Simulated scan of single mutants.
Amino acid sequence: MTTMDIHEILKYLPHRYPLILVDRVVSFESGKRIHAYKNVSINEPYFVGHFPHYPVMPGVLIVEALAQAAALLTARSQEAEKNTEQVYYFVGIDAVRFKKPVIAGDQLSLKVEIARQIKGIWKYTACAEVDGQIVTEAQLMCTAREI
């Protein structure tokens, strides 16, 4: 198991402000699972309009944070095998459930496991938690393309 700080994360993800949604990886098991964090600050640009009187992190961005964690898991796991630069695309989502709002000050715990990999498509089970309570869960899919 290993960890990753933001500098290492930025080596694997093409995302940048304001769409980098993984701040730290606290555990990583190659080809199996990743546990990462997104610190939710009132300074996030989406809080201006979602919603001004009760700032809530948009569900689509929680799913994006999970997808970025999945991309990190796959990119880091495939690192030894790839000879070219690749980008990981989010290609599918199933069974998404939003169970509780995420608000400013929360620390979003992102847990993603590889369920299977077939012909260049990875399928994951993913959940986001705040204070040990599941706020979002989903099944995600991604693929890699050379750039």
Rank of each mutant, 00 (worst) to 15 (best):
T2A: 11
D5K: 10
I6Q: 05
H7P: 00
H7C: 08
P14V: 05
P14H: 08
H15W: 06
P18K: 00
I20P: 02
L21C: 11
R24S: 07
F28T: 08
F28S: 02
F28K: 08
G31A: 11
I34D: 05
A36V: 07
Y37W: 05
K38P: 09
N39C: 14
N43A: 12
F47N: 11
G49P: 07
H50Q: 06
H50L: 10
H50G: 08
P52K: 05
P52A: 09
Y54S: 13
V56R: 05
M57I: 03
M57D: 09
M57K: 10
P58G: 06
V60D: 06
V60S: 12
E64V: 10
L66G: 08
A67R: 05
A67T: 03
Q68W: 01
Q68S: 10
A70M: 10
A71D: 02
E81Q: 15
V87Q: 12
V87E: 12
Y89E: 04
A95M: 11
V96W: 01
F98M: 13
K99D: 08
K99W: 00
I103L: 13
I103W: 00
I103P: 00
G105I: 12
G105L: 10
Q107W: 00
S109I: 11
L110H: 04
K123W: 01
T125V: 11
D131S: 13
G132Y: 05
I134E: 15
I134F: 02
T136N: 06
A138G: 11
Q139R: 12
E146Y: 02
E146W: 01
